[in-house]
């Protein structure tokens, strides 16, 4: 009984302290994160050092998977596609929303209706976008053929155009997200600054380039970092619209990873691809972070 009271007192005293509660509060999130995120990330690296076909036991292979990848032409081909897709989507995915955000910022009537309509593609499942666009792209009866004066374009079946088609859908889908962020950035610029520059004779384009754009650089920086990262993650679109084809022209890293892991059962190689992707993203994000001082305001 005495001992029971002793523990009860101890527990009571513990309950007075933040640390006791803090651990209760973070335990579910921490355990889940360790089991379902941190552990798989580490395991992924270990798997990337093995040869494993899912049937026999994994064999340790050192850096062989990485060496094999870095010396194969296919890897550089996929890497090129990935960068081509990522850079184009990022550039277009910033220019279009920026242009529209500037127009929307003019306090026009019905601004909210526009904002909502630009945003709807962003929240729809990609399967929906893929179905709708595949039909729009259809080379025989698609509406794009009709819009382009009956010109037959094999949007998804021509190896020179397929990637462009994917990029169009991707820019269309994500435009609303960047638009909202850039618009918020524009709205935080005080109207007085624009008025002052107008009095100084800076109108139109000049005002935009010398006054608005520099003040907007923090928002542009955020949009740049986010869009770059997300554009390296693209999977659904490729899986649903081209399956990496035609002639591998839309084969990008994540889809290649998926194929290696779940279709060719080269799990070690797939994990190595995952880690290379991780390293590439890390380097790019780090570089963007470093260079921000050169062009982002107040950094």
């Amino acid at each position: 009984m005495n001992q029971f009271n002793y523990f009860k007192n101890k527990l009571n005293r513990l309950a007075q302290k933040d640390i006791f509660w803090a651990w209760i509060f973070i335990l579910p999130a921490l355990l889940g994160t360790l089991i379902f995120i941190v552990f798989p990330i580490l395991a992924s690296f270990i798997i990337s050092l093995t040869q494993w076909n899912l049937i026999s036991a994994p064999k340790f292979a050192g850096l062989n998977n990485y060496i094999e990848l870095l010396t194969s032409n296919e890897f550089y081909f996929v890497l090129f596609n990935t960068f081509y897709y990522a850079i184009t989507t990022t550039v277009l995915g910033i220019i279009f929303p920026l242009f529209l955000a500037v127009l929307l910022n003019k306090n026009i009537k019905g601004g909210n209706i526009f904002k909502t309509s630009y945003f709807i593609p962003f929240i729809t499942p990609l399967i929906v976008a893929a179905i709708a666009w595949e039909w729009i792209f259809d080379p025989n009866t698609g509406i794009l053929k009709w819009i382009f004066f009956n010109t037959r374009i094999e949007w998804l079946y021509d190896k020179n155009i397929a990637m462009l088609a994917i990029i169009i859908v991707s820019v269309w889908k994500n435009l609303g997200y960047n638009l909202v962020i850039l618009l918020a950035g524009l709205q935080s610029i005080s109207p007085g600054i624009n008025e002052a520059s107008k009095i100084d004779g800076a109108w139109g384009i000049k005002n935009f380039v010398y006054i608005t754009l520099p003040l907007l650089t923090p928002s542009i920086f955020f949009v740049l970092v986010m869009t770059t990262i997300l554009s390296f993650h693209v999977f659904d679109l490729i899986y649903l619209m081209t399956q990496g084809g035609p002639e591998n022209s839309t084969m990008i890293l994540v889809y290649w990873l998926y194929k290696n892991a779940f279709e060719y059962f080269k799990v070690g190689k797939a994990s190595a691809i995952a880690y290379i992707l991780f390293i590439i993203l890390f380097v790019i994000t780090f570089a963007q972070w470093k260079f921000r001082k050169k062009w982002v305001l107040n950094e």
Partner: peptide
């Protein structure tokens, strides 16, 4: 960390 990094494990 990209989600694809941990999807296999």
């Amino acid at each position: 960390v990209p989600p694809q990094v941990n999807i296999i494990p």
